[in-house]
Design a protein around this nucleic acid. Structure first.
Length: 507
DNA sequence: CAGCGCTACCACACCCC
DNA sequence: GGTGTGGTAGCG
């Protein structure tokens, strides 16, 4: 009865004392300085919040890790350091056993899976074969839903099995592709495993735990297309229509040759004999702790190791050992930047509906802002907007992302289709693509402006399939003086940076 | 001195036939 | 019995 309130109260007191000791700065000060010295960062916190607050104040590219304490009841403390420095102390495996990566909420991340079943309860289950089949299914889904190509060679396969349990982690190493955050990963995973979830619940009744929506088909198309085309009508009608459309989809697909795939291999029995999935769907929550390569749970002494049937082999490197490469590949939120990085999203129907309602209620224009239209650098935003304004077409910033080590601001542009590659605007809908996901993405956002703060230049990329195929990238152009780093530095020293500035990654 | 974020489940209130 | 709400134990 009291537990929850006591915990809340304590949390509030904790925060209050923290604010008293270290009041929040009223002005956000972007740190654009080059890393002068690789000064060491190694800081421990009892509270996850404090660890993340420290990360925000830190100019180095640091991350939060959770360490299990000796106490044994699952208590954790939080370490903030860089990947390089963690590896330096971690690699000997004499210290820092029981280490977890904290996958930050709202952080771009890889596709990952936690797989397990009890061997005694499932004597006939062939774990390795199940992994192969799952990877096949996931790759097919990535291809159909996002036109992303991959195979088992892109899947880092880690083993933590015991005599009792078959246990694996899969971390997908997709090329130039990441998910918006691990909540979106979870939505994607639940969506593509819908047929398997259906198998379990239909044993008893028709009540389907279906957080993704009313879509039981193979890889149900997202109703994004519907969302956009319905924006013109009233919100009530939108909802009604998308419901009926969604429930019609399974019939239409089932009658076509594309029947839903056989995912019965994913159904396993628990200790108590209940059926559930080989794939653990509980690992896609905010700030999820995910055990590190070569770490074990505190009670056990079984660490995650490269599975004997793993088919992913990282690139050879002069400076980085193979083990370190494996370590870096295993980190779910370690996304290396590329200027053609695609960020995949997967919303639940509920969220989509909510957003549709929100858009309808706050604005009459169709493809507005998703809430990310302003970066912390208003001068650069203004400059980028000036780049995507020609005559009477005014482009907008659909979203932006900041990549720390490279000091790059990446803007996805909407309502502007002018392409430097072909010297004219792309036509809107003359290309047929395999699925509406990609089509709609292109309709909404085809141009990308990359601002390189380190080198004080900008360039353009284009998502159009033809431009993408030839990997088009415009020449680099210098940033105008008024948005260059020196200007920002001067402002910083004078302390007159706009107080409205927000922090990167915050949504 | 000190973990975090859920979901499954329960208890209860209210409603309607 | 159906449905919604609030609240916690316990899982990952």
């Amino acid at each position: 009865m009291m537990g929850k309130w006591e915990a809340k109260l304590k949390q509030i007191e904790e925060r209050a004392s923290c604010y008293e000791r270290k009041p929040l700065s009223s002005v956000y000060r972007p740190r654009l300085s080059k890393p002068e010295d690789p000064s060491s960062v190694w800081k421990l916190f009892h509270r996850q919040n404090q660890a993340f607050n420290f990360v925000k104040s830190c100019k180095e590219n640091v991350h939060v890790f959770a360490l299990e304490c000796k106490v044994g009841d699952g208590q954790r403390i939080y370490l903030v350091t860089t990947y390089a420095q963690l590896w330096f102390y971690y690699k000997s495996r004499k210290h820092l056993l029981h280490c977890y990566e904290v996958i930050p909420e709202n952080a771009v991340c890889k596709l990952y899976f936690d797989l397990e079943f009890n061997k005694h309860a499932n004597p006939e289950a062939d774990g390795k074969k199940m992994v192969v089949l799952l990877i096949e299914h996931v790759c097919k889904a990535l291809q159909e839903l996002y036109s992303v190509s991959c195979s088992a060679e892109d899947v880092f396969n880690l083993d933590s099995s015991t005599d009792e349990k078959f246990s694996r982690h899969l971390i997908f190493q997709l090329h130039d592709v990441a998910f918006k955050d691990n909540i979106h990963v979870g939505n994607f995973v639940r969506k593509i495993l819908q047929p398997a979830l259906h198998l379990i619940s239909s044993e008893y009744d028709n009540r389907i735990p279906n957080p993704v929506g009313h879509e039981f088909s193979h890889f149900p198309e997202t109703p994004l297309k519907q969302e956009i085309s319905f924006n013109q009508t009233s919100p009530d009608k939108d909802i009604a229509k998308s419901w009926t459309l969604n429930s019609e989809i399974p019939e239409r697909l089932e009658s076509a040759e594309q029947s839903s795939p056989d995912l019965s291999f994913l159904v396993v029995k628990s200790n108590t004999g209940e059926e559930h999935l080989f794939v653990d769907l509980g690992v896609y929550t905010r700030n999820r702790n995910f055990r590190l390569y070569k770490s074990s749970k505190i009670g056990k002494c079984v660490a995650l190791e490269v599975a004997e049937d793993n088919k992913f082999f990282p690139k050879q490197s002069k400076n980085i050992s193979e083990e370190n490469q494996y370590f870096l590949s295993s980190l779910v939120s370690n996304i290396r930047f590329s200027d053609s990085l695609r960020i995949l999203t997967c919303d639940t129907s509920q969220n989509k509906r909510k957003r549709t309602e929100h858009v309808n209620s706050t604005s009459s224009s169709v493809e507005t802002i998703e809430g990310f239209q302003c970066s912390p650098y208003p001068e650069i935003d203004r400059f980028v907007l000036s780049l995507v304004t020609k005559n009477d077409t005014k482009g907008g910033i659909r979203r932006w992302n900041y990549f720390f080590p490279e000091e790059l601001l990446v803007y996805d542009i909407c309502r502007y289709r002018w392409c430097q590659n072909i010297g004219r605007a792309h036509k809107s809908n003359n290309i047929m693509l395999p699925n509406t996901h990609v089509q709609e993405f292109l309709k909404v956002s085809i141009q990308r402006i990359v601002v390189d703060l380190k080198n004080e230049v900008w360039y353009q990329k284009c998502h159009d399939p033809v431009c993408k195929a030839e990997n088009f990238k415009s020449d680099c152009f210098p940033l105008p003086a008024e948005v260059s780093l020196l200007f920002l530095f001067k402002e910083l020293h004078l302390g007159i940076l706009p107080a409205s500035a927000k922090e990167p990654q915050a949504t």
